[in-house]
Amino acid sequence: MNDIGTQQAQQPARPDPAPLDLTACVRSATAAPSLHNSQPWRFRISADSVDVYADPRRRLDVLDPAGRELLISVGAAVFTLRLAIRGAGHLSDLELFPVEEEPDLVARVRVGKPMAPTPAAEALVAAIPHRHTNRWPFARSVVPADAVERLADAARREGGTLTVANAVSRNAILSLSQEADRALRSKGRYRAELARWTSPHAGRRDGVPATAIGPWDALEILPIRDFGLLQPRFDRAVAQFEPYPTIMVLATDGDTPRHWVNAGQALQRVLLTATWLNLATTPISQPVEIPGVRRLLTASGSGKWAQMVLRVGYGRPAVTTPRRPLAEVLLPDSSEES
């Protein structure tokens, strides 16, 4: 896989590169998005590499029985780790599923030679702490064509395809999304799972806090995940969302665990590029969580598998969601275990 930042001429090595702080790079990686902010990842740091593991205990059984979205989340963390290493002035090499006997070991990121980061890589690094899912109404402004192309290019660089929906496709996708959302909300197990990831308690560092839930759409045009499902409607703000949202579909050339990880890397590169462009984003995952609906979004003829639906636009700043402390996600060095 090409190293991050190769879209511009590579910079010469710094004369005296600072020691690489892999712990700081892992801390950046934990800022990646994940389904219900479940943060289903763990890391093991060694002298010159970081192993990234999926944490199956954090898989959502109802929404994600196959672990597809779990691996998308881990893939987003893998990309953020690679980016952090690049921003710290080093190249890196990525190997997916390096040990056949350890299926939870998703990626091994090896530190490469020192190389000053490109301005594009530095811009994406700067966007990491500012990327947040935005569940609020967006402005009615049209997303410029050059911004759409930059987002599509970001997906291509990580092996994904990002397609903006035209008016007819957008309406069809929104209709399918609403259908999927209704199907999910009708399940008691779904409501119980939602409660698990939204129930507040002191000191909680995962899940979706009330401050990040946002209002519900008065016209119910957009299927924004209703994290307030278990709260009375009148307790939540009501707002009118944009009537003609910009909707994009992220797809991959296949539908294996490797493709899911790469979808996560493409997703995070797209989201960080959008943040860099001052765009707000909302992943809409309901339509790809119902197999029958996902099949309708998949271009079987070209082999493009839909992995995520995105809403993109200009919106108010979104709040930060909590992250678990490093002590909870760092595994001991294998040499320390022996």
Rank of each mutant, 00 (worst) to 15 (best):
I4Q: 01
Q8N: 13
P17W: 04
A24Q: 12
S28V: 10
T30M: 02
A31I: 04
S34C: 03
N37F: 01
S38K: 08
P40M: 11
P40G: 07
W41I: 14
R42I: 09
R44I: 14
S46W: 11
S49N: 15
R68N: 01
A76G: 14
A76M: 12
V78W: 11
I85Q: 11
G89N: 09
D93G: 11
L94W: 09
E95N: 05
L96G: 12
E101M: 15
L105G: 06
P117D: 02
T118Y: 03
P119S: 06
A120S: 03
E122K: 09
A123I: 02
A123D: 05
A123H: 02
I128A: 03
I128T: 05
H132A: 12
R135T: 05
R135Y: 05
A139H: 09
R140D: 13
S141F: 00
A154V: 10
R156Y: 00
R156S: 05
L162Y: 06
A165E: 13
I173W: 13
L176I: 06
S177L: 01
A180H: 01
A183H: 04
S186I: 00
Y190I: 09
L194E: 09
R196W: 05
W197H: 09
P200G: 08
A202Y: 08
G207H: 10
P209H: 02
T211S: 15
T211E: 14
A212R: 04
P215A: 05
D217T: 09
L219P: 00
I224Q: 02
D226G: 02
Q231G: 00
F234D: 06
A239I: 06
F241R: 04
E242H: 01
E242L: 01
P243G: 02
P245N: 06
I247Q: 07
M248C: 06
V249G: 03
L250K: 05
T252S: 07
T256Y: 08
R258H: 13
H259K: 11
W260K: 13
L272T: 09
T273Q: 14
T273C: 07
T275Q: 10
N278Y: 09
N278E: 15
T281I: 08
I290S: 04
R294F: 09
R295K: 15
S300A: 14
S300M: 14
Q307N: 11
Y314H: 14
R316W: 02
P317A: 07
P317V: 05
T320Y: 00
P322N: 12
P322I: 11
P322E: 12
A327S: 12
A327T: 13
V329D: 02
S334Q: 13
S334C: 07
S335Y: 10
S338P: 00
